[in-house]
Write a protein that binds this DNA or RNA. Structure first.
Lengths: 194, 194
DNA sequence: GTCTATAAATAGATAGAC
DNA sequence: GTCTATCTATTTATAGAC
């Protein structure tokens, strides 16, 4: 009858607030209010703000691994799995237009803050990178990591511009472009540039 | 014998600090110290932090217009001018790896802060977008704006990942890829996707 | 135009009662 | 485990002397 322990509710609330408002712009008071907790009791669960950030990143890493495992399981072949990645831009379109990519915006912010958790956050990118590279490798490409980084870069840029221009049609166009590029990559051993 | 007025020195310092540390993470004290000014005197020149941000964005807009005019003048044809855009990633490689793209990171931060200057900052993107779209149009493309947004998105994503992974070779590869894509677009009326 | 001193608000963090 | 009360540091911002 205690569905989610307080600690987990704090992490979930912080995860959401860090995404929507940014890490630095989110205060303890914001998180406490979101959970329905007093500021004082807060420190029983987390000693410092950086401790919460660590916990949020650990949670995001776990969530990401679970997502990739799900795609791995559900996708019948590597190409379908890569398409699943491309389609996050559609599935999360509203959130991305409102707040950008959770991974890209967090890493960018931590870089500005010169924060010690930078490397941990960057591992979120690495999870996608490694997973995508393996899918491309399974398709017989020996430049899987290069293709993975390229696709990751394009999806990041689409998220950034989608956030700035709030243009749904632009996102849809770019998703179709990525799909066409993937198809061309499958048909041709030396796919078209960009 | 007063080379740069204090107001301009404040704007220059804030511009640099906002880029390297982010807007919110930069305090008046930081800017004042960077200029060599007391905090008190600061308010003689700018009433609020938002006023400084406005001035910084105005400066960046002017700098960007000057840069685009220079490319317009120096490039012998639209293709060369687009190549000049692509090569910012090389020219500013060190800064981009350290702090990301000045435009993309500012717009992303202001979006998180839900800041009133969002639209003003987004105009920086629009300057590049409109300029690129015209170059593509001059090349006979009727989908100039689409191509402009696509190139802008890819360069944004490259900046984001360059900042996260600090990988110079990755940036070089993506620049070559963009150049190859541009060449293919020129040769073919229906260029390869992505 | 520049300075020192200071106000007022907020943020991170702690102590101790219940 | 949760609360109230409090401390300390920082930040934005103002007042007034020079």
């Amino acid at each position: 009858m205690d569905p989610t322990p307080t600690r987990q509710r704090i992490i979930d609330a912080a995860d959401d607030l860090f995404y929507r408002q940014g890490f630095e712009h989110t205060s303890f008071a914001d998180i406490a209010a979101s959970v329905g907790l007093s500021r004082g009791n807060f420190y029983y669960h987390f000693k410092t703000k950086d401790d919460i950030l660590d916990a949020v990143i650990v949670k995001r890493l776990a969530d990401t691994r679970a997502l990739l495992d799900q795609w791995e399981f559900a996708g019948r072949n590597p190409a379908d799995r890569i398409r699943a990645f491309i389609h996050i831009l559609i599935a999360n379109q509203a959130k991305i237009m409102a707040h950008g990519c959770p991974v890209g915006t967090l890493c960018a912010e931590l870089s500005k803050l010169d924060h010690g958790a930078q490397d941990q956050a960057n591992r979120l990118f690495t999870l996608f990178r490694t997973w995508l590279a393996r899918q491309f490798a399974l398709l017989g490409r020996d430049d899987g990591d290069d293709l993975a980084l390229h696709l990751l870069a394009l999806s990041q840029g689409v998220a950034t511009l989608a956030n700035a221009f709030r243009d749904k049609a632009f996102v849809d166009r770019e998703v179709r472009r990525m799909e066409a590029w993937l198809d061309a990559s499958l048909a041709d051993a030396t796919p078209a540039p960009i």
